[in-house]
């Protein structure tokens, strides 16, 4: 594919470069806080990118994506609690559990469309939230502390800030690359076709729901990986992390950056979490500022930040 030089691609390249070089800046200035903040940002960007796959490309407005963060996280936490510290076991379990959950929830929710789909994914995620709250052996409502981060047989040390950051960044870039390949593949074309006109796709021979379901599962699995990373980042998992507000935040990150643009969710997440950080220093009612801001984006910048940049590029 030919790489075009336009405002959008330049911004994407600069942001990617900035993310790559961030640990150097952090080391040079002794600013550890920024590295911690961006580790969190990178992890959420991966979650948002996975949500974008179904929301932006697949047209499935899932309002329950935080559930995968929780499931991936609990897989790591519970296994660690039970004495299984190897990431080679924890992480595949996290992915498999997320995939399985997505398969079941998807099979049930994809019978519905539109608002019903939003409501049913929300309902299932809230169910997952209550199930997690009921896990009394694993802390129930209070959550579960993870005393030791996942080990990878000495390959990489997750307790080392810089190494962990680069692992998260590798997962993010890998995830975005994977989504890019998927979106342009046969499968991705079909999924986008179904978003565009389901009846037409059925009429030319596609079993729409089967493609939707597979897309839903891929998205959930990638988000489960983000969950495993997040649990290692915070050394803690709790039901609060799967609450519906968290799902809502992920949706906002995607819309912010630009639904259906490959790198949009990354930009959206960076802006969302930076703004949250900034605003929460001034006022505890930061959501009161964030809300109207989001409204402006939705009203005046369809396609989010990436859509805006695209228009700047065209002049």
């Amino acid at each position: 594919m030919k790489l075009q030089i336009n405002v959008r691609n330049v911004v994407v390249a600069l942001v990617a470069l900035g993310l790559l070089l961030l640990p150097l800046y952090s080391a040079a200035t002794g600013n550890i806080f920024i590295l911690t903040l961006f580790t969190r940002i990178v992890i959420f960007a991966l979650a948002a990118a996975s949500l974008n796959l179904i929301m932006g490309y697949g047209g499935m407005m899932s309002f329950g994506h935080a559930a995968y963060l929780g499931i991936g996280g609990y897989a790591v936490g519970i296994l660690a609690f039970e004495g299984i510290g190897s990431g080679f076991i924890q992480w595949p379990v996290a992915l498999a559990a997320s995939a399985l959950y997505a398969l079941v929830i998807g099979a049930l929710s994809l019978r519905t469309r539109g608002v019903y789909f939003i409501m049913i994914t929300l309902a299932f995620a809230q169910m997952a939230y209550y199930v997690a709250s009921g896990l009394s052996r694993y802390g129930g409502d209070d959550g579960l502390t993870i005393y030791r981060r996942s080990t990878f047989g000495g390959l990489i040390d997750l307790s080392n800030r810089v190494q962990f950051y680069y692992l998260c960044l590798f997962c993010l870039f890998g995830g975005v690359y994977l989504i890019w390949r998927i979106v342009n593949s046969r499968f991705g074309m079909v999924v986008q076709g179904i978003r565009s006109n389901e009846q037409r796709m059925q009429a030319i021979g596609y079993h729409a729901n089967r493609y939707r379901l597979v897309c839903f599962v891929i998205s959930g699995t990638i988000c489960g990986l983000a969950g495993a990373l997040l649990a290692n980042n915070t050394d803690f998992v709790s039901p609060a992390g799967m609450y519906w507000t968290r799902s809502g935040e992920l949706m906002v990150m995607v819309v912010f950056g630009g639904m259906g643009s490959l790198f949009g969710p990354v930009i959206g997440t960076i802006l969302f979490l930076l703004l949250e950080e900034l605003l929460s220093q001034f006022t505890e009612y930061w959501a009161l500022v964030m809300g109207p801001l989001l409204l402006l984006i939705v009203l005046f910048a369809r396609g989010g930040i990436m859509g805006l940049l695209g228009r700047v590029g065209r002049g």
């Binding site: 594919m1 390949r181 998927i182 342009n184 593949s185 046969r186 499968f187 991705g188 074309m189 079909v190």
Partner: peptide, 8 residues
């Protein structure tokens, strides 16, 4: 069409 990698 469960091919996920090559560009369609």
């Amino acid at each position: 069409s469960f091919r996920f990698w090559g560009a369609a």
